[in-house]
Structures are given as C-alpha cells and as structure tokens.
Write a protein that binds this DNA or RNA. Structure first.
Lengths: 217, 217
DNA sequence: CCATTATGTAATCATTGATTACATTTGGGC
DNA sequence: GCCCAAATGTAATCAATGATTACATAATGG
C-alpha cells in the first residue's frame, strides 16, 4: 500500500449516511450474529460473524480477546434466555405443589433444549464457563440449580417424598433431563427407534416415571 | 530432501531399514494416533495424526476421504472398546439377577466414560454415525441397546418391576447414565458442589436411586 | 480546540482441511 | 520371470480461519 495520502487534511464529516466508521453497538451485533449462526447449524467463526455485521475480520477482536470470549458471551446470552423461559414456565404451576413444579421445570427444560438445540449445546458443553464474561453465565446457571433445590426441600417438608438423600435426587433428576436433552441433540433417538413425533411424549413419560420413583406412594 | 535422484535406476531393495516408502498399516496407525490425540485433550487434526505417523500431510486422505471419515473410524474403535468393557463387567454379575446386571451395566458405563472422556465424547456426539465406517459402530451401539432391553424384559418376567412401560424405563435409565456421564465430561459437577472424589460414590447412589424407583417394593 | 482513548481497517502470518500432479511400490496376468 | 495397472505416499498448492500489528478515524472531555 504505497502512498497512503497522509497529507489529506481529514475527511470533514463523511457524506450523509455512507455507513459511519464506527458501528453502533458492534459487540451486541456480533453476539446476535453468532447466536444466529449457531442456530443455523453452521460453524460459528469470528470472520463470518464479522461478515454479517459488515465489518472487517479484525474488528471483533476489539471487543473480544479471542474466539472463546465471543462464545462465552454467546453462552451468557443463551443461558439468560434459558433461565427466563424456565422461570416463566414455573410461574404457571401452583406454588403449593412442589412436585408439580418439579415436573414443570423438567418439561420446560426439555422443551427449550429441543427448540434451541444450538443454544443448548453452547451452554451445556461448559467450555465457556472458564472464559471471559462468565459472571452472569455462572449466576444464571446457579440460580436454576438453587431453584430445584428449593422445590425438592419443600416437597420433602410436605412429606411427599420417599426417604432419600435430597441432593442425590436433585442430581439424578438433572442428569435425567440433561441426558434426555442430549440424546435428542446428539441424534441418539433414531437408533432407539424413537420417532421425531414421539419425543415430546417420551420426555413427559420419562419425567413422570422419575417422579413416581421418588414420590411417596 | 532435495534432489530425489530420479535417475537412479530403482532402489534395489532399500537399505536395511531406511523407512520403506509404503507405511506398514497407515490406516491403523492414524486411528491410534487420533485416539491418542483425543485422549491428550488436543484437537484432533488430520495433519497432527499424519505427523505422528511420520507421513506427509496428504497421506491420510488415501485412507479416509475426509477428516470426518477418520473420526468415524476412531469412533468405531472407541465404541468397540466400550462395548467390550461393558460386556466384560456384565459377565461378572450373576445371570439370575437382572436388576443386579442392570446396575452393573450402569456402573461399568459410568466408569468407562469417566476413565476415557475423550473416547466417550467421540462416540456420544453421534456426529460420526452418518459418515464412513459406521457399520461396526452402529452394530456395537445397537448391541448395547439390545442388552439392556433383554435385562429389563427378564426383570419384568420375574416380577421384579413395578408396572411401567419397559421402553420408557430403558430410555430413562440410559438418559440418566448418559446425562451423568456428560455432566462429568462437560464439567458441570464443580458447579453442583460435587468434588472429584465424590463422583464415583454419587454415580452409584444415583443408579441405586433409579433402580429403587422402578423396582417392586 | 485539541489530545487522549476507543474503535475500525488493511496487511500479514501460521495452521488446517482439501485437491492435484507426480513418484514409488506391490501384485496379478501373461 | 516380466510388465503394467492399481494402491499408496510425496510435493505443491488453495481457500478459510484465528490471531497480531501498524495505521486511520471517530468520540470524548478537559
């Protein structure tokens, strides 16, 4: 690049709307672009996100030190939505029915995972908990854990559960829904002879089976 | 190595062991190298596998049409080992005790997943079931599914189970262990306050909780 | 008004998956 | 045994990507 015209005084103000040199909120736009890319099933590359934001390939690195930091921000956003939807679903179950709320939690969990597979994968792999903006990510995640803990404690107080260690129940329950969600995400069900249309019903059945197993008869 | 001496009539037989032009069994070596790479936590790249096999970067593509085909072969090998270990563990449980065998299956499953995280991830993501050498992969996988199916059918015949749909129990059980294995693999447990040393015991507890839930009281 | 800082661009690099032309070896048909 | 075709490895090359650096431009506040 010879002779970069450094002598030119300075562009006065740029023509009316020839796209300003500075992007409005590039950080936000990059996160959204990455989320969208993920949901489209494509590999999330920094360059492609930059392309969608109509910005140079190096620009994103002004906002994120590296690719993982971008992905961490994406994870935080996805986790926020996940938590919001689950808490909304719980709000519709009667407060006085802990096991009903437990059930609602599981159903909402599996439904969101099924409808947002790429988002769910990103917040699940846990690869991005160590990098960058993990503050909210960690908080939103911890809040969901605490939620089931409270519900199970209430159920125990009301004498609804067969005697068992509560933490064990909590982890088993989460392993169950996480495993089911991932079996779907990872394409296991065709190998189990479970058709696409049956998954929703199977999810319900599996949750009910588990609850029947821990509930006092 | 400049000047490849193309004028030389033809190397008579190659000096004693100056590495023959043709690798002994490159395919096998590449799979092993990839398995090893995965277990070391590194990204599995075709080039690095080639490097470890002391072969040119293009050589692997003589044996695998693309990277995914290599990974599919790796998955097939890992799945073979997985199946072998689980069946061995089952062989030590009394045939007459279906629920005991079911339990042994779960324990062996979780132990292998814990000891071979990278292998487990490769056979779990299901990304490689569609590509290349999926014949054995699919067979070994299906065999493990059929195994739990038989065990549960026996348990039901012997009247050991509370009334419930067997397939539902089977899928719930698999989701439970898969979810537990992946929670560990994906680094969830630190966020659940479960220390490294407690995982083994928690695995056992979770499996027992599930079995207690499906077994006739 | 201007200087400091934030933010974007251009150029460049190393790594990787992939392809192509060419070299070497191997093995079967004669 | 000999020779040619198929198999297998090498060298060179491409496009895409994450990342870094030098530089250009905008925004901000003293």
């Amino acid at each position: 690049m010879p002779a970069r015209q450094t002598s030119k005084p300075r562009a006065r103000r740029q023509t009316p709307q020839a796209r300003p040199y500075h992007h409005g909120d590039l950080r936000r736009v990059l996160i959204d672009a990455a989320l969208q890319l993920a949901e489209e099933g494509a590999e999330v590359s920094v360059r492609e996100a930059a392309r969608r934001a109509a910005v140079s390939p190096g620009a994103p690195f002004r906002h994120f030190p590296n690719r993982d930091a971008l992905m961490a921000a994406v994870a935080a956003e996805a986790q926020r939505r996940f938590r919001a939807e689950i808490e909304a679903a719980m709000g519709e179950a009667p407060v006085a029915d802990p096991l009903g709320r437990f059930r609602a939690f599981g159903l909402a969990y599996l439904r969101w995972a099924r409808r947002n597979p790429a988002h769910f994968e990103i917040i699940s792999t846990g690869r991005y908990f160590a990098h960058g903006s993990s503050a909210e990510l960690t908080r939103d995640n911890a809040e969901l854990i605490a939620l089931t803990e409270r519900i199970l404690a209430e159920a125990a107080e009301q004498g609804l559960l067969r005697p068992a260690d509560l933490k064990r129940i909590q982890i088993a329950g989460r392993a169950l829904v996480y495993g089911f969600a991932r079996m779907n995400l990872d394409g296991h069900f065709p190998r189990w002879g479970v058709e696409e249309g049956e998954i929703e019903r199977m999810a319900e059945g599996v949750i009910d089976l588990f609850i029947a197993g821990i509930a006092k008869p």
